[in-house]
C-alpha cells in the first residue's frame, strides 16, 4: 500500500524534470503523445496517469515486470483494447500525428493501418505465405495481381525473408519455423504501409538465433518506421532501442535515453529492476 502512495509522486518527479516549455516543444514534434492516461479493466485500474511522448523514427522499449501495464499501454495505440469488453480509458488522451485516436471522428480501420502490430506469439493465418502478406491489401479491396505481387515481394524483402521463401510462396505459412513465422508477421504488418509498428514481446517465443535475426530486422526498420517494443529481455531493450520506459504497477516510473536508463537510472525502483533485485 505504501508503494502505491509513493509512485504517483515518482511519475510526477519524472515529468517535472523537464521544464514546461521543453515539454511542449517535445510534444509538438513527437509522433505519439500520451497525456494523463488512466486505464481500467472493469473496476480495476491498470494504468495510472501516464504521460509519454515518442518521436518519429525512434525505437522505444517498454520494460517492466509482468502485469505492469506495458502491453496494455501498447494496445491502446491501435485501440486493440476495444476488443476487450470491460476495457476503457477513463481519463487522458492519446494523440498520434496530432489526432486524438479515441475521438469519435477517428476511423479505427485507418488507425490500425497506420499503426501496425506484431504479437507475442507469431500468428500467421493458416493460409499460404503469399495470402498472409496480401491479406491486408485484399481486405482494402486491392485486386490487381501485379500490385499484390510487388507488395508481397517488397515486404518479404523488407523482412529479410524473401530469399528463404521465394520458392514456396504458395505453401502454408504454418509450415515455417517459429522465427520465420514471426518475421512473416512483421512483413504482413508492413504490407499495409504503417507509420508505427508496435511489437508486443516479439521474441519471447523464439530461440536466440531467430531472436538475433528479428533484432537485426528491427535495426533496419528503424530507418522507416517508428517502433514501440515491449520486452522482458533487458539486454534486448538495450540492444535495439533508442529510448526506454520503465513501468511498474501501472505507472510510468522512468523514461529516458536507453543508455541513461541502463547506466544511470534516476529512480531507485528502476535501478532495482535493472540490476535484477526483483521482477
Amino acid at each position: 500500500m505504501t508503494k502505491t502512495k509513493e509512485e504517483p509522486t515518482g511519475a510526477k518527479v519524472e515529468t517535472n524534470n523537464m521544464s514546461n516549455s521543453k515539454q511542449e516543444a517535445a510534444a509538438s514534434s513527437s509522433l505519439i503523445q500520451i497525456k494523463d492516461l488512466d486505464f481500467f479493466y472493469g473496476s480495476k485500474q491498470a494504468l495510472f496517469n501516464i504521460n509519454l511522448n515518442m518521436l518519429e523514427k525512434e525505437v522505444t522499449a517498454f520494460i517492466g515486470p509482468s502485469g505492469c501495464g506495458k502491453s496494455t499501454l501498447l494496445r491502446c495505440f491501435n485501440r486493440m483494447n476495444d476488443l476487450v469488453d470491460i476495457a476503457r480509458i477513463e481519463n487522458g488522451t492519446i494523440h498520434i500525428h496530432g489526432h486524438d485516436i479515441n475521438s469519435e471522428e477517428i476511423d479505427i480501420i485507418e488507425l490500425r493501418k497506420k499503426v501496425g502490430m506484431v504479437f507475442q506469439k507469431s500468428n500467421p493465418f493458416p493460409k499460404s505465405i503469399y495470402e498472409n502478406i496480401a491479406y491486408g491489401l485484399k481486405i482494402q479491396g486491392v485486386k490487381d495481381k501485379q500490385i499484390l505481387d510487388e507488395v508481397v515481394e517488397k515486404c518479404l524483402r523488407g523482412a529479410a525473408l524473401w530469399e528463404e521463401v521465394k520458392d514456396r510462396l504458395n505453401e502454408n505459412a504454418l509450415g515455417m519455423s517459429g522465427g520465420q513465422q514471426q518475421r512473416l508477421c512483421i512483413a504482413r504488418t508492413m504490407a499495409v504501409s504503417p507509420n508505427i509498428i508496435l511489437m508486443d514481446e516479439p521474441c519471447s517465443a523464439l530461440d536466440p538465433i531467430a531472436t538475433a535475426k528479428v533484432e537485426e530486422l528491427i535495426h533496419e526498420l528503424k530507418t522507416k518506421y517508428t517502433i514501440v517494443i515491449v520486452t522482458h529481455n533487458m539486454q534486448q531493450a538495450a540492444r535495439v532501442s533508442d529510448k526506454t520506459a520503465f513501468f511498474y504497477m501501472g505507472k510510468l516510473i522512468e523514461l529516458g535515453k536507453t543508455d541513461d536508463i541502463f547506466m544511470n537510472p534516476k529512480q531507485s525502483q528502476t535501478e532495482a529492476y535493472i540490476s535484477g533485485k526483483f521482477g
Binding site: 486493440m80 490500425r112 493465418f125 493458416p126 481486405i139
Partner: peptide
Amino acid sequence: VPKSFKEASFALGGNRLQTIFKVIFPC
C-alpha cells in the same frame, strides 16, 4: 479458432465482417 487470428486481422485493419468471413470462418 485461436483468438490471435482475430487480433491479427483486426490489427491489419480488417473490419468485423472481413475478419469473420476471411479468417475465422475458413479456420
